[in-house]
C-alpha cells in the first residue's frame, strides 16, 4: 500500500511540475487546436456573378452593391471584312446592351435586387442562401442558393390594349456550388424560365428548362479565369413569333471570362456567345449560333458599399 501512495504522490507531483514548466503559449495553441472549429468556405467565386449567371456568392450582409455590365456587338460579322476591325471587334459597332443593378443583403442569407436593361426592361430578384459549404462538426459538401427573378417588359407593346400580366416572365434557378480547392470552384445551375404569355404556335411553350455549368480557376490572389456553358432543353425549335413567322433559337451558350479584383471593384471581362443582357434572354431566346465570330465582348463591374455598421469599432 505504501508503495502505491508513493507512486501516487510521484504521479501527482509530476503533474504539478509539468504544469509549472509548460510554456504558456504552447498551452494556448494546444487549447485552440483542440477546439472543433466549423470552417465555413468563403469566396467560392469572386463576385455575385460567374459571367452571365449569378453565382452562389452574395453581397455581404448590410452591403449595397452596384453592378453595371455591358455586352458589345459581335466580334466578327461575316462578309463585313475590315469593317469589323474598324468597329474594334464589336466595341463600337453601334450596338451594346447595358445592364444596371442594385442589390442589398438584409441578412447573410437574403439578398434583394433591382435591375434595368435594354428597351425599358425591369427586373427584380430575391436570392436565398440555403446551404453553406463547410467542414467541422457538421460537414456540408456544397453551397446551395435559390434565385428567383421577375422580369417586366415596359417597352411599347404591339397593341395598346395588351394586358399587363402578359409582359411578365420569371426565372427560377438553383445554384449548386462547390469550392474544390483554394483556386477551383464549380457551379451547377438548373433553371426554369416561365413566360406568362407566348404567341400561339404548336412548339411554343410557357415553361423553358435549362441546365448550365460554370466554373472558376484562380490565377493569382486577385485574378481568375471563368467559364460558363448552358444548354436549353426545350422550346427552341420551330417556334412562331408574334408576327407568326418561324424562329429557331440556339440552345447552347458558351462564355469565357477573366476576373480582376482591384481591392474595391471587381472587373469581369468576358467573351460570350449570347448578346442578351438578361438571364431570361440568354437562357431561353439566344439567337447567336456557336461560331467564333459570333462571340461578343463584355464586362461586369461591381462595387459594394457598407451601409450598415456591423461591428462596433471603438
Amino acid at each position: 500500500m505504501k508503495k502505491r501512495i508513493i507512486f501516487l504522490m510521484l504521479v501527482c507531483s509530476f503533474f504539478v511540475r509539468a504544469n509549472a514548466q509548460d510554456d504558456l503559449l504552447g498551452d494556448l495553441v494546444k487549447e485552440d487546436a483542440s477546439k472543433v472549429k466549423q470552417n465555413i468556405t468563403t469566396a467560392t467565386f469572386k463576385s455575385s456573378r460567374i459571367i452571365n449567371f449569378t453565382s452562389v456568392e452574395m453581397t455581404g450582409k448590410g452591403n449595397l452593391q452596384f453592378m453595371i455590365s455591358h455586352r458589345f456587338g459581335q466580334m466578327w460579322k461575316e462578309g463585313k471584312g475590315w469593317t469589323n476591325v474598324a468597329q474594334l471587334f464589336g466595341l463600337n459597332s453601334g450596338f451594346a446592351n447595358t445592364y444596371m443593378s442594385f442589390d442589398y443583403s438584409f441578412t447573410d442569407w437574403l439578398n434583394l435586387g433591382l435591375a434595368t436593361t435594354g428597351n425599358a426592361q425591369f427586373e427584380s430578384w430575391a436570392k436565398f442562401k440555403i446551404l453553406k459549404q463547410q467542414t467541422g462538426q457538421k460537414n456540408v459538401p456544397i453551397s446551395l442558393a435559390f434565385y428567383s427573378l421577375m422580369h417586366a417588359d415596359a417597352s411599347e407593346g404591339p397593341s395598346p390594349d395588351d394586358q399587363t400580366w402578359n409582359r411578365f416572365s420569371y426565372l427560377n434557378q438553383l445554384l449548386i456550388a462547390r469550392k474544390f480547392s483554394e483556386s477551383f470552384s464549380l457551379q451547377l445551375i438548373p433553371s426554369m424560365v416561365h413566360y406568362n404569355y407566348v404567341p400561339y404556335g404548336i412548339n411554343n411553350t410557357n415553361n423553358i428548362f435549362n441546365i448550365a455549368i460554370g466554373g472558376r480557376m484562380k490565377l493569382t490572389n486577385k485574378t481568375a479565369i471563368t467559364f460558363e456553358y448552358s444548354r436549353q432543353l426545350n422550346g427552341y425549335k420551330n417556334l412562331l413569333d408574334e408576327s407568326a413567322s418561324a424562329v429557331n433559337y440556339v440552345p447552347d451558350v458558351v462564355s469565357l471570362g477573366y476576373d480582376w479584383d482591384t481591392g474595391g471593384h471587381i472587373f469581369q471581362f468576358f467573351l460570350s456567345s449570347a448578346s442578351s443582357a438578361t438571364n431570361i434572354g440568354q437562357l431561353s431566346a439566344n439567337q447567336n449560333a456557336l461560331k467564333v465570330g459570333n462571340f461578343s465582348l463584355g464586362f461586369n463591374l461591381n462595387r459594394s458599399y457598407g451601409i450598415k455598421k456591423l461591428v462596433q469599432v471603438h
Binding site: 455581404g60 452591403n63 459594394s304 457598407g306 450598415k308 461591428v311
Partner: peptide, 10 residues
C-alpha cells in the same frame, strides 16, 4: 470582423 464583408474577405 469588419464593417464591410468584402474587406473581411480580402
Amino acid at each position: 470582423h469588419f464593417n464591410n464583408a468584402l474587406l473581411e474577405e480580402h
